[in-house]
């Protein structure tokens, strides 16, 4: 009896978590280079199964363990490209990530709004983190000269090549940890390898959030939450009858 109450509560919590994730996706629907999170669920292993060899109630052996939040997954599919005509707006047309140096660590991003800071370094405009070249070094420019970035990532100033924008492939997507500011950290360096830059200038990548999908799952999660909440109510009613009426002496 009470066991079912907890399963329903877990259902409410999991769906509420899903709404949190969807809300964040929708809040970032205008954030350049944002990759949507997917709230995933998994069946929870019942106590009787997870404690193999230990004592468990035989009554519960055949009951499922309910719902549990699965580890977050990031949908790394490409967002739409939007033309901005900014000379230092770049978008990656294929796979890969730009690399920036933030807080002494190498981080990755698909947000290509670049700027030149006061020291002449190429930086990411949002966080001010220095953009790195293929060798992992910051790129220094002469701001008084005209900068162009070619589709293969070569940066030229007045016809002279200055450096190449570094592009890196993250081979194991599950290693990505979002750190905010459109930056991704990668837990193990082994999951990163340099790749051939394939970029476009004057273009930015939009968030890969599709409003229709997000709204549909928002409605779905809302109804599932209500269904689980109703289940809690019914079980509470049953429990109430049991306590108040079955043992009643008229």
């Amino acid at each position: 009896m009470l066991y079912g109450l907890y399963l329903s509560a877990a259902g409410v919590m999991a769906n509420s978590h899903r709404q949190d994730v969807i809300s964040n996706n929708l809040a970032n629907s205008e954030t350049n280079g944002f990759k949507r999170d997917m709230a995933l669920f998994m069946e929870r292993v019942p106590e009787s199964k997870s404690r193999i060899g230990q004592y468990s109630d035989p009554m519960l052996d055949r009951i499922g363990g309910g719902l549990f939040i699965a580890p977050s997954a990031i949908d790394t599919s490409a967002g739409e490209l939007e033309t901005t005509d900014g000379p230092l707006d770049v978008a990656i047309s294929g796979e890969g990530y730009f690399s920036v140096q933030s807080g002494g660590k190498q981080q990755y991003t698909r947000d290509g709004r670049l700027m030149v800071d006061r020291s002449g370094h190429l930086i990411q405009s949002g966080t001010g983190a220095k953009v790195l070249d293929i060798a992992g070094k910051p790129i220094e420019l002469d701001p008084s000269r005209l900068t162009t970035i070619a589709n293969d990532g070569t940066i030229t100033q007045d016809g002279q090549p200055i450096g190449t924008l570094g592009l890196f492939e993250i081979t194991d997507v599950s290693q990505i940890v979002k750190t905010g500011g459109n930056l991704f950290a990668v837990a193990s360096p082994a999951a990163v390898r340099p790749t051939k830059p394939e970029i476009r200038t004057g273009v930015l990548e939009r968030a890969n959030v599709d409003p229709a999908t997000e709204l549909a799952s928002l409605m779905d999660s809302q109804r599932q939450l209500e269904a689980n909440a109703n289940m809690i109510r019914y079980q509470d009613q049953t429990l109430g009858r049991l306590v108040n009426e079955v043992g009643k002496i008229s």
Binding site: N28, E30, T31, D37, P71, S72, A73, G126, V177, G180
Partner: peptide
Amino acid sequence: SPAGIFVGLGTRISNTQID
């Protein structure tokens, strides 16, 4: 577990950039 569970807290304006 191969991956953690992260919930984003929303968005903010990083800057207004003069074109």
